[in-house]
Nucleic acid binder design. Structure first.
Lengths: 194, 194
DNA sequence: ATCCTTACTTATTGATTGGTAAGTTTGTTG
DNA sequence: CAACAAACTTACCAATCAATAAGTAAGGAT
């Protein structure tokens, strides 16, 4: 049903989120699809092309998911919790956020991929800024200063919480998830005291 | 003066913090020292040995630096700021925290290195827990619940702040540092309102 | 029937990887 | 002076990497 390109991107995303973009080969990818590594080059001539397509699609998918959160969530608090829940989901699937992974690999990535990564984070921050502003005017959130700055803090915290749970995941998956959720709950308490 | 082993670890650490542990080769390392790649194997038979020595020494150095912070800082707030400042220093030197880098590479790392990474983070959290407890009893910090949980939040935030500034660093170094400091300042405001 | 495009495979390339074996230089010790 | 270990070098190795060239099977269009 789904095209080979799409299935390649699915497999590449899984590998990139688990091992990193530089840590999987065309062979790894080809084996998962049951084709030869040369076949990949037909769809993505260079690995940089694959990387660019990968993060571009990821950005679109995340944007879609956040729009869906906007549609279904009743409050700014729910929207923010929906955002955080998607990270927890990744952890459950043994997948690091692709943005986090590529951010750490930044130095070794092709320029075109690097700039896509930056755009991805910028998009997340824009969305978070809107949520935080909405939440503040609604009296749900309490913070001082620009919502942009608070959005940067939210993003930093959720990324950091995921990353610091990541090494724990391989040995104690349940504990890693619990840790992530404890940290985020604590953060939310500061933003929206009950 | 300094032994070759030590200089190897210095160079390896710089490479690992900039590019990642899997993204530098024995050749890269050898070239920086002006020796051949085979010469490295004399000091560190396998790359895993190098990795283990690398993070073990890093952990010792960080522990020493934190003891020095304890010695010189006047208050818990100063100690915490000293901790955060060391991350900002890394950013200035174009170096990601080694723990953060290795955390993201966890899946592809030898087991022995993985467990060292976990111990490193555990040590940081222990130190942070003490600082937070001291600060709370001194009336400097305000938070509810266990200090361990708050320490996990602090660590997550500072790691995440560094990581999210990292992709920005290659294109706008000054802005990356400013972003990091804004995020951490905002975090400190929540912990120790003035 | 022929041509062309799509979607691959087979086979191979040159570069790079971590790692090894064997030799060489240098300084120390008996 | 002889023996020896420390600290390398030279010269490899097999494996793996992304990438390329050339061929091929299948299907649609003319």
């Amino acid at each position: 049903m789904t095209s080979t390109s799409e299935r390649l991107l699915d497999a590449a995303q899984a590998l990139a989120q688990q091992r990193g973009f530089n840590a999987f080969s065309f062979r790894d990818l080809a084996n998962r699809l049951g084709i030869t590594n040369a076949g990949i080059h037909y769809h993505f001539p260079k690995k940089a092309d694959l990387g660019r397509a990968l993060i571009a699609r990821y950005r679109r998918n995340v944007a879609e998911a956040l729009t869906e959160v906007d549609r279904t969530a009743g409050s700014a608090t729910d929207r923010l919790k929906g955002f955080i829940a998607s990270y927890a989901d990744g952890l459950r699937k043994e997948r690091l956020c692709l943005g986090v992974m590529l951010a750490s690999e930044t130095v070794t990535l092709p320029d075109e991929v690097q700039s896509e990564v930056r755009s991805f984070f910028a998009a997340l921050e824009d969305w978070l800024t809107r949520v935080l502003e909405d939440g503040r005017t609604a009296g749900e959130f309490h913070f001082e200063g620009a919502a942009e700055d608070e959005a940067a803090l939210v993003l930093s915290t959720v990324e950091g919480a995921m990353l610091s749970a990541w090494p724990l995941r391989s040995v104690k998956p349940v504990q890693a998830l619990a840790r992530f959720e404890t940290v985020m709950q604590r953060f939310l308490n500061g933003l929206a005291p009950s």
